[in-house]
């Protein structure tokens, strides 16, 4: 199985933004998705660094892929979406608007924020030129199996959300701005203060969600450590890892070892929890009764 690094969902300052792609050039990953997924207001702060990041990744033998925005509404967002293909690298659509605006006949990949729930939609996308689909993270293992099989028949590589806070919702409203008593137009880039998202806790002070501008994520870091063999046997081509602060290249290396069989099931989770005792892991969307559940909980209890 291959490793894809998904688009950085958070708003990072320009220097750490570039540093991530310098590190990933040296990391054992196959494909790196970059660009702005969540909020078009962030893009001007690092836009001029994207070509250099693409070149760095290409020189290191990684495939760079440009993401579209997750929710395209404004005129300037439509324009920037239409211009994505001009960068000369593969585009990952995360809103069907990007598909509508791609040049006729262009091959593309499909990100986790496009609703691919069944074989018909997968087949329709394949007919439109999709070569790779990262499935929506809320899909249970049974659906993943069916779609991986369909993907094999259609020649579409199927990818599954392997690690990181799960994108759960996207809105027209900016929650970071709202929390600071501001509107989206006058957000003053409040989300920049939280490079891994802002923890949202319940009334009994339990960690629950994470806020990231117009996006809402899970508090837990999804972790498919216990499902690697099952996913591989189902025909899943790649796992997707979602960038976070800290030693992300090291995290990628850990997953590479796990996929290569050098680490046993549970070893990635154990290493991650050792390094960051505060984070909670989950794999409930794949195998649990709800997304928050973690199949490793009993083993470690």
């Amino acid at each position: 199985m291959e490793l894809t690094v998904g688009a950085n969902q958070f708003f990072w300052k320009p220097e750490p933004w570039s540093a991530l792609y310098d590190q990933l050039a040296q990391a054992p990953v196959d494909r790196v998705v970059l660009g702005e997924l969540v909020c078009s207001k962030r893009l001007p702060f690092y836009q001029d660094r994207i070509p250099a990041a693409i070149t760095t990744l290409q020189k290191a033998g990684k495939q760079p892929v440009l993401t579209s925005l997750a929710l395209v509404t404004l005129k300037r967002e439509r324009k920037m979406t239409a211009e994505l293909a001009e960068m000369g690298v593969e585009v990952e659509i995360n809103d069907l608007t990007a598909l509508a605006l791609l040049p006729e006949g262009a091959k593309f990949s499909v990100g986790p924020l496009v609703n691919v729930y069944n074989e018909s939609t997968l087949s329709w996308l394949a007919g439109m030129g999709a070569t790779r689909v990262c499935l929506p993270p809320e899909l249970p293992l049974e659906a993943v199996r069916t779609l991986a099989q369909a993907g094999r028949d259609l020649g579409v590589a199927i990818e599954v959300w392997g690690y990181g806070r799960v994108p759960l919702a996207i809105s027209g409203r900016c929650y970071h701005a709202r929390r600071h008593g501001r509107t989206k137009d006058n957000c003053q880039f409040a989300c920049e203060e939280d490079p891994d998202g802002l923890d949202v806790r319940t009334l009994e002070n339990r960690s629950f969600l994470a806020m990231n501008g117009v996006q809402t994520l899970s508090d837990t870091h999804a972790c498919a450590d216990h499902q690697v063999e099952t996913l591989r046997d189902a025909g899943v081509s790649a796992l997707r890892l979602s960038p976070q602060t800290g030693d992300f290249a090291g995290l990628c290396a850990l997953w590479r070892k796990r996929l290569d069989g050098e680490l046993a099931a549970g070893a990635v989770a154990e290493a991650l929890q050792r390094a960051q005792p505060d984070i909670r892991l989950s794999d409930g969307f794949l195998t649990g009764a709800s997304g928050t559940e973690w199949s490793g909980a009993q083993a470690s209890a």
Binding site: Y117, E138, A169, R173, T216, G291
Partner: peptide
């Protein structure tokens, strides 16, 4: 709905039941 409809998994995250599925 405050989230973009059909693009929200908050409910299945907490309960396993989602609008989409």
């Amino acid at each position: 709905c405050v989230m973009a409809e059909g693009r929200c998994s908050l409910s299945s995250y907490a309960t396993g039941k989602s609008p989409n599925m």
